[in-house]
Design a protein around this nucleic acid. Structure first.
Lengths: 230, 230, 230, 230
DNA sequence: TATGAATGAGCATTCATTCAT
DNA sequence: CATGAATGAATGCTCATTCAT
């Protein structure tokens, strides 16, 4: 790793490939440390010295991997966003009613929110980014929002969801989920999976169009064996 | 309410204007300006100069009314909290089932969230405050949280609300509501009242114990042993 | 009531008290308070607010009596200097050998040093004054210094004092005396008079021209009229 | 010694000069500059900018070597104190009568007082330091004071010094010496060594117990019951 | 005479960023 | 690659002083 141990320092001229890998690993280590500190103390209260110190390197060394503090912030955010994008893509690929998809989305999104990178999606302030990156963030947020709204609208159309205002409903659901990123850090009474399961049920309970459906497909899906507290 | 338009919100220091207003009015004017700027740009990006400039005074003049920047922040927060405390007190005084109370709480709280001071309750970072004030904030947040949970637990007891984990349900509801403070600023498609009305319905839709339904599929899943108030 | 001894040093602005006192009395009260604070905390750490507060008035009110903070400082100094000037004049008017005069000077000067205004002569920094006042201070210091040197030189001439470098001897004596202004505040084991008596003896012990004289006529003469121990 | 002339005291940051000097040298250079400025103009009138400017660096660069302005002040003081501690240790190690030791102490101490760091011992105001450092200063001052008193008391015991109140005598001697720190800066008519020599003689002239004299007129006057240490 | 309010000037300190080594 | 050193820009806060009332 980045430890200065002499034995771990075989040759300054490692093969190109492994050097690149080492570099990426260090980049990740920086992000891991940074995201933790940013969440713990808040972006503005964390100095690059704090980050460097925790990594046993010096401040300017960080500039080998990132061009600026806000780029670090952005990359943290990007890692979280990546998870969300992947998860949306996956759900979109899959089948099921709009309600089923929504449940999956809620479940997966909630779980992301219990991770550091996930929390950074809602805990970081885009105004700390450059205009360019801020635009990227805005676009991504819009994407997520549209996904929620689409599922809701589709659900109303395909009859799996009771008529409602998709925009407001999306806000309500997203709000519940995003809020996880704020309270989960300090209150780890449940596993991320458990929270996700609960929210998937709870947030869609009021949405399901009752008359048409007897069985709830999600119930059987919510992996009770895995993260459940038994 | 506090319209963002500067012309609609004249500073008591408007040059060549009556400077005779009461001290408290000026204090309030500072807070009004500060809360707007803090929400617009974020506490750390707003300098006291920015605040002063918008009020047509100079930076040190602010120190006639507040002892420090973080005290301004705290007072903004306190005004929002005051609204919430009042609203909770009122609802507690009134009657009705726990579900009815919860609906009222959601409605009123949602509406507060659409105001500047209300939004500051969830948009400001308590870590920017002194330890003493931070403690006050923490206590207040706890108070709100407990109120939500109590209504939920009481509802389960009095039969107006379906069995659920009050803690998680409270998080879900509070999340939806708190999130309003984040998106409402930029998206004023609805009036605060309209949002409140919608949320009051939507967030309780899934909670109401429908007398028709005897078995609740969720019940078996909601860990009755863990977080339940018994 | 933050005043150390309100009854002993009553402010002429004591609320609900007669506010009709003469202007000069108030001026003096300001100086009395100021000199205490300046000595206690140091000129730069004392704000005019501190001074005003202790007098139960407001900061700008001070400007009715003084034009600036450094003028207050200067006036404090001036009061001390006045004492010294008077005392020198008196001694000069009197008779006796140079050694006798020197003893009188030491005695009187030492006693002044144990007072607040006296201490301000050596505890205040002339660089805090305006150039004009600083010049006055410099002149006065020179005057004092010359007096010491003259007595010493005269003593060498008239045979009452052993040959010595008057300049250095003056520095030595003045140093001992001035230093009183630094330690006496905190260490009031002796009365000012007692200190003065001791120093008058001690500082001249090594100076008296021993061979010519068996008994020291000054000893019995030392201040028969003034601060005598009776 | 440390001449004020800039050419005689080159900054390690002299532009286009060797910047290779060791960190400690730079630290010292800061202190050298700072102590001069502090003595010249007074601590409160010297800004860190002034210090930095004279060193051809910028203000924040100072923070590479010191954590705060008052730390610089303290380190200046500490260097002076170090000299004094060393000198006391040396004298304590040596032999001789108490009077001889006292003379050595006076001589050495006087010489220290003619240096910048020495003068800072008596010209700087401990109230400008943090509480922790202030405590250190107080302790050191006490140490010096006790040394003077001890030599005096021992001298009285071993017969080398005439009976006297050690506390007051110590004050008188220390006052003369400390005062050097105030006047020597501006009046360099003598070398430090010359001053020291003169003072060593002058200040002990009156103390030596002349074997010829049996009765000491002072004895009856010096209240042996009051301040005496035994 | 006294004051509340305001201000201008100043200062220590922080920190992201750069650069020579 | 890594670092020690340096910096520019910024910012919160203080305080003597002024002024309208």
């Amino acid at each position: 790793m980045d430890a200065p141990s002499p034995s771990a320092d075989p040759s300054p001229w490692m093969p190109f490939e492994s050097r690149r890998r080492a570099r990426d690993e260090k980049r990740e280590a920086v992000l891991r440390t940074a995201v933790q500190l940013f969440l713990e103390q808040g972006y503005h209260r964390v100095t690059l010295n704090d980050v460097a110190e925790r990594l046993n390197i010096t401040k300017p060394a960080l500039y080998n991997y990132f061009r600026s503090k806000d780029e670090i912030l952005f990359e943290c955010w990007a890692l979280g966003q990546e998870s969300v994008d992947k998860l949306i893509a996956e759900i979109n690929k899959g089948g099921g009613t709009a309600l089923a998809k929504l449940r999956k989305l809620i479940h997966a999104y909630a779980e992301v929110m219990t991770t550091d990178y996930g929390a950074s999606l809602v805990r970081f302030d885009p105004r700390d980014l450059t205009e360019a990156n801020r635009k990227t963030v805005r676009a991504a947020k819009k994407r997520i929002d549209r996904t929620f709204r689409r599922y809701l609208a589709d659900g109303v159309t395909d009859g799996s969801i009771k008529p409602c205002d998709p925009k407001l409903a999306a806000f309500a659901i997203a709000g519940s989920l995003n809020w996880i990123g704020h309270w989960y850090q300090r209150d780890r009474a449940w596993s991320g999976e458990a929270v996700a399961g609960q929210f998937a049920v709870q947030l869609t309970e009021g949405l399901a169009a009752s008359p048409a459906r007897k069985r709830s497909p999600v119930t059987s899906k919510s992996r009770p064996a895995k993260g459940g507290r038994k």
